[in-house]
């Protein structure tokens, strides 16, 4: 049943050049960033450190178990690209009117939604997998000895990263199903993500603003600590925030739930 929906949906992307270009750009970007970020940061620090009275500590991002926190935090910045792919391919079904055709041919409206949920789930899974592989390779290259206990310590950042992506993509899913146009949807999501929520969040007290969706998503994984920050006495949270993760889960249900309630009643 689910397999059938997966197969139908898969056929829609697998021969699409646009899909492969977008997904390889996104994944390529992630991998390049993961593999070069340490060198990049250290070159900045070294530059700045040449004039400093005390030696600046360099970054070491890739050792187990810190690599999971570092990479998942970094990867979170690129989730907008993933949401873009989600929105392009959902709104395509409306601009090509193929959603109509799918339903006419005997796909129920909820099956159609499920096929898109699986699409999002798989995209997030692929991104998480690439992150996991990159982290494993980088960690093994950097850590002096490979210990399974260290490898699995803080591995919870991996599912947390998946949740962050999935929550954001569910938001994209809701916007795409509501607006049905790719340009409008991408515009609205970007506006909300970069401008609207940050301004609202700035005006609200922290104990309220932390329940805003984007805020909650980014709070699940806090800024990683570094030797540099420690020097200034700044300490960030080094574990996954469960309350924020729960807020994210609630948002997932909410965003997806709204679509499941509204979509089956609409004219296509």
């Amino acid at each position: 049943m689910m397999l059938r929906l997966l197969k139908i949906d898969f056929r829609k992307y697998v021969y699409s050049k646009t899909f492969w270009v977008l997904i390889s750009m996104y994944l390529g970007l992630l991998v390049i960033v993961f593999f070069t970020v340490e060198k990049f940061l250290n070159s900045i620090v070294t530059d700045a450190g040449s004039n400093a009275p005390i030696p600046m500590p360099g970054f070491s991002l890739y050792t187990f178990p810190l690599v999971w926190h570092n990479l998942t935090f970094l990867g979170g910045f690129f989730k907008i690209f993933l949401a873009l792919i989600v929105m392009v391919f959902i709104t395509n079904e409306f601009t090509f009117r193929t959603v109509r055709q799918n339903v006419m041919n005997g796909m129920s409206r909820t099956d159609f939604l499920w096929s898109k949920i699986m699409f999002i789930f798989n995209l997030c899974l692929i991104s998480t997998l690439i992150l996991f592989l990159s982290g494993s390779i980088l960690g093994m290259m950097t850590s002096e000895q490979f210990l399974l206990t260290l490898f699995f310590q803080k591995i919870e950042f991996i599912p947390a990263y998946f949740l962050e992506l999935f929550t954001f993509c569910s938001m994209a899913f809701l916007i795409a199903f509501t607006l049905k146009r790719s340009g409008l949807s991408i515009g609205l999501l970007a506006f909300y993500y970069y401008i609207f929520e940050p301004s609202i969040s700035f005006m609200l007290p922290e104990k309220v603003s932390k329940y805003l969706p984007v805020e909650a998503m980014s709070n699940v994984i806090d800024v990683p600590n570094s030797a540099l920050m420690n020097m200034f006495g700044i300490n960030f949270r080094e574990y996954v925030s469960i309350p924020d993760a729960i807020t994210c889960l609630i948002y997932c249900f909410l965003f997806i739930g709204i679509v499941f309630l509204a979509h089956p009643k609409k004219d296509l």
């Binding site: 059938r4 197969k7 139908i8 056929r11 829609k12 021969y15 699409s16 050049k17 646009t18 090509f96 009117r97 193929t98 109509r100 055709q101 799918n102 041919n105 005997g106 796909m107």
Partner: peptide, 21 residues
Amino acid sequence: PIFYPYLSGVRNLKIIADIKD
């Protein structure tokens, strides 16, 4: 007529075959 523009005739029909089982 409504089909996926970037897919061939055969591939479009395969999607329909999958939907209709």
